[in-house]
Design a protein around this nucleic acid. Structure first.
Length: 637
RNA sequence: GGGCAUGUGGCGCAACUUGGAUAGCGCAUCUGGCUUCGGACCAGAUGGUUGCGGGUUCAAAUCCCGUCAUGCCCGCCA
């Protein structure tokens, strides 16, 4: 069994617990503290103070009526003389009321290095999500425009969270919801004659630009009622309008997915709103909710003839004083369902509450070799849906409808199975990225995901070209693109999801302040050192003599950090935060730089084997962590 | 008016969920380092009353109350 920070914390806590019982019993005080509580008091202190540290004595002080320092002293000596201490725990010290564990650096290093070199890509993964199926939805962009940088943030978050959950043994289904029956597509159809006029453009971009013009025309010509008529016709999925829009949408989504593929973002299944309607999912869902008395038909007041969800029920039953806050319309008085109604129905599919009998067919072969499927009017039944939890990557602007969704499902299932990752939306210096007004089109450069990548790649190509020496001809041609992608992905994923982002070209394209390429650089350095070390990459024999060369310097520091990987990956999973992974990768890169600056590897003499092993381990750790934020590495750059 | 989120050196962020030792990191600025495994690098320095005011505690960036600022949401739109 390999040791890591989780194991050590657990063992330390147990050992502390046993010693505490003795000491406190001796002191004549009756205190019970759970092992979990002790474990919670353990953190990783500054290296001068030990490897692990517990502040538990502070919590005991009051009840025991002794100073924390005295209790710490008693416990530490009991642990040092007792048997509860594991053999890899070298000594227990005590300082200012803290109990500090000093681990046997040779044993700990051996255990961690052997584990990571053995487990490779699996190192750091966990089983906390085993047996749980999660459907994760992203980015669900309307099919009338290209992905802009806001959609990109959404997609990168969804993709990375999927990877992180997978690494924790969750079974993941990546789903994308396509709203082909919405107002925006009706508007596209209204202004159909504006389409296709621009040759050589990507289809989604062409649509997006046309849409801005169409939207303007509609306002100027007061054509809203015409659009509504189209919208109404589209509700019939067999209508000519509906079929035509579906064809336009499919073409548009294929164009959008060219962008997704360029960023290495893939899906498992697309669900179309038109299929939701066709399969009467909405109808069934509404019946279900009526039966459960979640919804009701209003016969009075402001919402007369609407089907609504009212959160504070009977009190205002006969009054017209419904406050807007607690009534949500699902079916309008004209019989048309609202978006929220469709979303509720859709989540009944996701969570397996209603099976609409979707059929699926192949939509696209993705560059990762996996087919993405689509709901369809003809195809086969497949195993999509029926998830235990549904994770929605949706901007924080939709907090309200998402909360309503969660509340309704808590009522239905009795537990919380919908998770809304409410990320802060992306804006640009001058304003918003509105699709309607065309904010994404920018002025000099557009704010599309495509444009961002191509601009970034110009810069990285230049840098690679400038830095290239004659001997560097082994740098592969895909490196500039990889570096560009690393820069963009790291920049978006290093900040907490809930923070809002203001995009600026100048800052985005400044590679000096960007950590993605730095991590890649570190990886490339590690690769080159190993190449020069001329040892087989697939493990070489390390003996006890090699491990005994470990010091309490930069070498042990980086090993200890690698030992926290599983803990970090679990934390990122529980909190749905790729930023935790990005932060770790950055720290690891910095530590690695410190390590190889201060400890020569090839000229390491007796320590050479150990240091080569550390380089291998760090390289693997970096590879695993960067993989979770979808950043590819390169052996040379 | 109500709800949610954010506020940490000049700038961008971390630590807050689970209170703990000297509040970390990057950029920028200043100083130094390439005959030695790749300078997309490293070392050192400058810079903080954690928006403000109370409270709880042995201990508060972290918890509680209040307050200010900013953003988003609150429609028979999606």
């Amino acid at each position: 069994m390999g040791l890591n920070s989780i194991e050590v914390k657990k063992a330390f806590a147990e050992s502390l617990g046993e010693s505490m019982k003795k000491v406190i019993g001796f002191m004549g005080v009756d205190i019970s503290v759970s092992v979990a509580e002790i474990a919670n008091s353990i953190s990783i202190p500054r290296p001068e103070q030990g490897d692990f540290s517990s502040s538990i004595c502070f919590s005991l002080a009051k009840a025991a009526k002794k100073s924390p320092a005295l209790i710490a002293h008693e416990i530490a000596s009991a642990m040092n003389s007792g048997t509860s201490k594991k053999d890899y725990m070298k000594k227990i010290s005590e300082e200012n009321g803290y109990i500090n564990l000093w681990i046997d650096e040779v044993r700990y290093s051996a255990s961690i290095l052997e584990s990571i070199l053995e487990e490779k890509a699996k190192y750091g993964t966990s089983g906390i999500g085993a047996g749980i199926k999660a459907i994760i939805e992203f980015p669900s962009v309307n099919p009338n425009k290209p992905w802009h940088i806001g959609h990109l943030r959404n997609a990168l978050l969804g993709d990375s969270i999927s990877r992180i959950l997978s690494a924790n043994s969750y079974s993941i289904e990546r789903e994308d919801y396509i709203d082909d029956l919405g107002l925006q597509m009706a508007e596209i159809l209204w202004g159909e004659d504006k389409l296709g006029s621009q040759e050589g453009k990507k289809y989604d971009t062409m649509l997006g630009e046309a849409y801005v013009q169409i939207n303007k025309d509609i306002t100027e010509k007061h054509a809203e009622s015409d659009v509504n008529a189209i919208l109404k016709k589209m509700e019939d999925t067999e209508s000519e309008e509906s079929q035509k829009i579906r064809r336009i949408s499919e073409k548009s989504v294929r164009a959008q997915y060219e962008t997704a593929f360029a960023y290495g973002i893939y899906h498992d299944v697309l669900i179309w709103e038109s299929d939701v309607v066709r399969k009467r999912l909405l109808k069934n869902a509404l019946e279900f909710m009526a039966l459960k008395k979640i919804t009701s038909l209003r016969t009075y007041g402001k919402y007369k003839d609407c089907t609504v969800i009212a959160s504070n029920s009977e009190k205002t039953e006969t009054e017209e004083s419904d406050s807007e806050d607690n009534v949500k319309v699902l079916i309008r008085s004209n019989g048309v369902a609202t978006y929220v109604a469709k979303d509720l129905a859709f989540h009944m599919w996701k969570l397996g509450i209603i099976d609409p009998g979707f059929e699926y067919s192949k939509f696209l072969m993705q560059p990762n070799g996996q087919e993405v499927y689509t709901s369809s009017d003809k195809g086969a039944r497949m195993n999509f849906g029926r998830a235990d939890i549904a994770i929605n990557i949706i901007g924080s602007a939709q907090q309200h409808p998402q909360n309503l969704l969660k509340k309704v499902f808590e009522e239905i299932t009795g537990e919380s199975r919908i998770i809304h990752i409410a990320y802060g939306e992306v804006s640009v210096k001058g304003g918003t990225l509105s699709g309607r007004k065309g904010g994404w089109m920018g002025t000099a450069k557009s704010y599309t995901a495509d444009e961002l990548l191509s601009e970034m790649e110009k810069i990285t190509s230049q840098i690679v070209a400038n830095g290239k020496k004659a001997e560097d001809s082994k740098v592969l041609p895909d490196v500039p693109r990889k570096v560009a992608l690393a820069a963009i992905k790291f920049e978006f994923l290093k900040v907490d999801p809930e923070k809002k982002v203001v995009f600026e070209w100048e800052k985005a394209l400044d590679l000096n302040s960007n950590s993605g390429p730095y991590c890649m650089y570190t990886y490339a350095r590690a690769s080159r050192i190993l190449e020069k070390a001329e040892m087989a990459q697939d493990g070489f024999d390390l003996g006890p003599g090699d491990f005994s060369r470990v010091t309490r310097g930069e070498d042990f520091k980086i090993i200890k950090h690698i030992g926290t990987m599983q803990e970090i990956i679990e934390k990122a999973c529980r909190e749905y935060k790729p930023s935790i992974i990005a932060g770790y990768a950055m720290e690891l890169s910095l530590m690695f730089s410190n390590f190889y600056e201060s400890m020569p590897v090839l000229g390491g003499g007796e320590s050479k084997n150990l240091r080569v092993a550390i380089v291998m381990a760090a390289k693997q750790a970096l590879f695993n962590m960067l993989g979770l934020i979808n950043i590819e590495t390169a052996e040379r750059m």
